[in-house]
Amino acid sequence: MTERVTATPAATRLIHMLKEKHGPLMFHQSGGCCDGSAPMCYPDGEFLIGDSDKLLGEIGGSPFYISEAQYEYWKHTQLIIDVVDGRGGMFSLEGPHGKRFLTRSRIFTDEERQELGQ
Rank of each mutant, 00 (worst) to 15 (best):
Leu14Phe: 01
Arg13Lys: 11
Leu14Pro: 15
Asp85Phe: 06
Tyr73Ile: 15
Gly117Arg: 04
Asp51Leu: 05
Ile59His: 05
Thr109Pro: 03
Met26Ser: 14
Ser67Cys: 06
Glu3Tyr: 00
Asp85His: 08
Gly88Thr: 13
Pro96His: 04
Tyr42His: 14
Glu111Arg: 01
Ser52Asp: 15
Gly45Asp: 08
Glu115His: 01
Phe108Arg: 03
Ser37Cys: 15
Glu72Pro: 15
Ile49Ala: 12
Ile66Lys: 04
Lys75Gln: 05
Phe108Glu: 02
His76Lys: 10
Asp53Asn: 14
Ile80Phe: 00
Asp110Pro: 02
Thr77Cys: 14
Gln70Glu: 07
Gln78Asn: 08
Val84Ser: 07
Phe108Leu: 09
Arg100Gln: 07
Gly98Gln: 08
Glu20Thr: 10
Ala10Arg: 04
Ala7Tyr: 11
Glu72Lys: 15
Glu20Gln: 09
Gly36His: 10
Gly89Val: 07
Ile66Thr: 14
Leu18Arg: 13
Tyr71Met: 07
Val5His: 02
Glu46Gly: 01
Asp44His: 05
Gln118Tyr: 06
Arg104Leu: 13
Thr12Ala: 11
Ala7Gly: 13
Asp110His: 01
Gly23Pro: 08
Ser37Phe: 12
Arg87Gly: 14
Arg87Asp: 15
Tyr65Cys: 11
Pro63His: 01
Ser37Thr: 12
Ser30Tyr: 03
